[in-house]
Design a protein around this nucleic acid. Sequence first.
DNA 1: CAGTGGTCTAGACCACAGG
DNA 2: CTGTGGTCTAGACCACTGG
Lengths: 233, 233
Amino acid sequence: MNRPSFRNWQSVQEEVRRRIHAREWKPGDLIPNESELAQEFGCARTTVNRALRSLAESGVLDRRRKAGTRVAAQPVAKATLDISVIRIEVEERGQKYGYQRIERDAAVPPLAISGAMKTSAQRPLLHIRALHLADDAPYAFEDRWINPDVVPDAMQEPFDSVSANEWLLRHAPYTHGEIAFSATSATPDEAAILGCPASSALFAIDRLTWDGAASVTKVRLLFGPGHQLRTVL
Amino acid sequence: MNRPSFRNWQSVQEEVRRRIHAREWKPGDLIPNESELAQEFGCARTTVNRALRSLAESGVLDRRRKAGTRVAAQPVAKATLDISVIRIEVEERGQKYGYQRIERDAAVPPLAISGAMKTSAQRPLLHIRALHLADDAPYAFEDRWINPDVVPDAMQEPFDSVSANEWLLRHAPYTHGEIAFSATSATPDEAAILGCPASSALFAIDRLTWDGAASVTKVRLLFGPGHQLRTVL
DNA sequence: CAGTGGTCTAGACCACAGG
DNA sequence: CTGTGGTCTAGACCACTGG
């Protein structure tokens, strides 16, 4: 009996993937524990742990202390989206990036905004509206509210050449946030800004970030018709 | 000088996060190497490595051999979306799941489909159209093509009570895939199925999965107006 | 209570890429 | 060529949780 040896965690992972794919281990099955696999594979348990932990993070395995490791019954596809600065996103597409500030002022936000940001209903926030361009064509419309209590420096920034999108990343650290993707119909105003027919289907990204208990900024990004957000599985 | 000690990788990670957030280490800065940090933190280098590697995976740090570890200049937000079976998605919302098959036949697909799936242009594929319901209301419209050369068993399946969405996960392993999110305007046909006004803005998920070099299935999921895909940062 | 995964350690060697 | 992160090892202890 010729047992191949597995010298690194990637090859262990590959072998486990192979067995799952080949249905030697079926969805829901309990697989041998780390010590047994380490012995079989001729490597340290640490190495097996590294491989299995990584597979669990990908949703391929379900691991529970004492209960052991099982092949996930409902493999959950984890799609990881990299949300970077829009300028870089455009440049990576090989296009020329452009930026236009449309509006900048301090204003009392609609209740939906102050409610979500948990700011006082009467408190004026910094409001920025801007257009991001790719090869001189409208790419994304940014509508943003900034909490001046958390980011006072923003009040001094004109945001006329550097986008709030980019400035905040460097000057306003956040601890956590929420993001939502949806589709929305272009209002006449939005259609005019993005240069598309009214009622076009737009791709929207809404993001709200926090620094501890205080909201930092809330932004809605609207992308023109045809925009796709892609990733691999 | 009272130096706190860090006994596990999570606390090391926390401390690194704190330093970045407090701007002790600024975006772009080179931070001490693993050995130095291990000494400072009073733990093994392995433990520091675990903490830093994890932060690098989150996009907080940039690590390169020999060049060292830097605080990411453009922190890329990694949004991880869990794409599971629609039935479970609905049930997790606390709603009753329902399913209706609309159509099932073998047909030669449009060129856009056979092209993307790299199947012969004349080869008939299995075509399924179905509606997923939440609390008896339309939730998502599924339009799917299945490659019978890769999943021959699918030809025996009626898909009248178990959705292709769910059946395939258990019977058709795949090695990799692509997924794209976008917004689209409802065609009259789609509007009728989803019970929404024509030209409504719909949220679309397009997925294409492969088993090695052969495509397994290509599916488009259309969600009714107002649907959001949410996650944390 | 006992079995499983989770983690830490100290030391070692290796692969890569910067200078 | 050399410093950095990447990984492996053997052994140990711990934390959680199922039965």
